[in-house]
Design a protein around this nucleic acid. Sequence first.
DNA 1: CTCGCTATTGAGACTGAATCTCATTCTCAG
DNA 2: CTGAGAATGAGATTCAGTCTCAATAGCGAG
Lengths: 148, 148
Amino acid sequence: MTHAIQVFAEYLNSKDLKLTKERRAVLQEIFLHPGHLEAEDLAHNLRKKRKRASRATIYRTLDLLVESGIVRKVDLGHEHSHYELELDNPHHEHMICLKCGKVLEFSDKAIERDLNRLCKRSGFEPSSHRFQIFGYCDRCRKAREQAV
Amino acid sequence: MTHAIQVFAEYLNSKDLKLTKERRAVLQEIFLHPGHLEAEDLAHNLRKKRKRASRATIYRTLDLLVESGIVRKVDLGHEHSHYELELDNPHHEHMICLKCGKVLEFSDKAIERDLNRLCKRSGFEPSSHRFQIFGYCDRCRKAREQAV
DNA sequence: CTCGCTATTGAGACTGAATCTCATTCTCAG
DNA sequence: CTGAGAATGAGATTCAGTCTCAATAGCGAG
């Protein structure tokens, strides 16, 4: 957390931007709820603590956090974006449970190798990728099997 | 095309729905522009031919086409959905050029195997997945390299 | 401390994709 | 031909996200 604030402060400074109380509050809130959170939740949580920040500010701050490499924007197949910490959290893919919404993270060297091989074959220069698997987590799968 | 209309008619029939001229026009238009099209383009193309269909009808028809397995809804990283033919077009992944928007399709047995192995390991039962690689296609990559 | 410059904020308007409402129109089996 | 249910289109609505702009805050210079 302290590290993140430092990184953020440095990034802002390098752009002649300021670490305001709103920006600090957003970052703090992200650390309090690790996992995959959405902008609207952030707004709601901050409001509960009397640390209001307008939607505009929250989205603007999230953009800054993404630019500074502290937070990653992820697509979990919903209509809106989710955000997860990027610091000390290497790139990975997601398995998303269609029943309970649980998100499992995974990463795999073999897949990365395949990806590079395929790109090379097509002369495509990859710069980012995302991979999502939708299905049923262990718990929900068992519940379904019992129901049958 | 004839095959697709037949499949669609059968699907509609099984649900006590009708193959109207609007629905037929949408399907026809999809065949005229193979590739990855968006709802708004469809509307625009139909309008040019005096075969107007309201947005509501287009979206409703696309849903029906997806349900009947004729069309597939795909995510190419834009804010809106794209659609591609599913008949005679097996599942595949997409490489999307960030410069020109070109979409390359690929599929790979090895990735599918890895996917299943990873799911098994987590007790996750996969039902669908998607994999997108963003980067630069051959042509745009070369243009970039020259520019440097 | 004051001035002045730039960055910041929040309220609310706006956008774009997609969905919904509902009155009107169409379809087709009987 | 008729009526019930399906289909349609115009426009309202939703929802995430962005933009505008007037008011405010922060800060260095004098």
